[in-house]
């Protein structure tokens, strides 16, 4: 497997994908369908994951801050910043790479092996543009929205731990959540989410679009999509953190 070969083929696919849609009305209706299919369906699981993520983060922070010099509200502050800086964007997107990424790869892969993509090509439809672009736009628009929900759900998870256990009082937790809030962290998280979303949609679509063979290959493409997306998300996280925060 030559990485340069894949980079070249991926670039060509993106070039075909980012052309003007043949019918703008059809493109918008496809995008709305994809937002519903890929995004809205991920909302519930995002909320559940984020709720537990915030709860665990609160417990872990409290357990690891034994220093009497650190004020109690530090738990709320650390929970908030960890959620904003990494968990709600990077960890959530790693999770969504498995959920949405595999979905996109297997859907497009199935279309390829059942000759639906060939049928579009013969009709003169730019199949890359018709199939992939609405998915990319939908995912790039919707994952940041999921991240915002994830932020609230994560903090709610921490609050519930404070409310139902005695590790920290709710007033101190809320004070910590509000203490020294840096607005840029929210934007930073949303920018990262949009970049990760692009990686999830485009890379998964790439693996699905070039499937050759049968259903076994669709499964392999789905796995490759998740693995590649995860690695690229982590790589992009390093680069974006360097660019946006330092």
């Amino acid at each position: 497997m030559n990485p340069l070969y894949h980079v070249g083929r991926y670039s060509q696919l993106m070039y075909r994908c980012f052309s003007k849609p043949q019918r703008v009305g059809v493109f918008f209706s496809q995008t709305l369908k994809e937002i519903d299919r890929l995004g809205v369906s991920s909302l519930f699981i995002t909320l559940i994951v984020s709720l537990f993520m915030g709860a665990v983060l609160t417990i872990q922070t409290q357990n690891n801050i034994e220093n009497p010099l650190l004020p109690d509200y530090t738990v709320g502050l650390v929970t908030r910043d960890t959620l904003l800086l990494e968990f709600c964007s990077m960890v959530l997107c790693l999770f969504l790479a498995g959920n949405i990424g595999s979905n996109i790869a297997s859907q497009i892969g199935t279309m390829r092996i059942s000759e639906q993509i060939d049928a579009m090509d013969i009709m003169g439809v730019n199949s890359a543009n018709y199939i992939i672009l609405p998915k990319i736009v939908a995912v790039v628009l919707y994952i940041p929205v999921l991240v915002v929900f994830s932020m609230f759900a994560g903090m709610l998870g921490g609050y519930l731990i404070a409310a139902f256990t005695d590790i920290i009082t709710t007033s101190k937790f809320i004070y910590g959540l509000q203490y020294w809030f840096i607005e840029w962290y929210v934007y930073y998280s949303l920018i990262k989410a949009a970049v990760f979303a692009f990686i999830i949609a485009s890379v998964s679509a790439y693996w699905g679009y070039f499937v050759r063979g049968g259903t076994l290959e669709v499964g392999k493409a789905s796995t490759r999509a998740v693995v590649t997306c995860s690695v690229l998300i982590l790589l992009a996280d390093v680069v974006l953190t360097q660019i946006l925060l330092l």
């Binding site: 019918r23 059809v26 059942s114 000759e115 060939d118 049928a119 013969i122 009709m123």
Partner: peptide, 26 residues
């Protein structure tokens, strides 16, 4: 050009009418 594929290659996510409408819509 019209083509009939071995496995029909109808679009799974569209109804039969939408499948037939597809080339016309495009």
């Amino acid at each position: 050009i019209g083509m009939l594929f071995q496995g029909s290659a109808l679009f799974d996510s569209l109804t039969i009418t939408e499948n037939v409408l597809f080339p016309m819509q495009m």
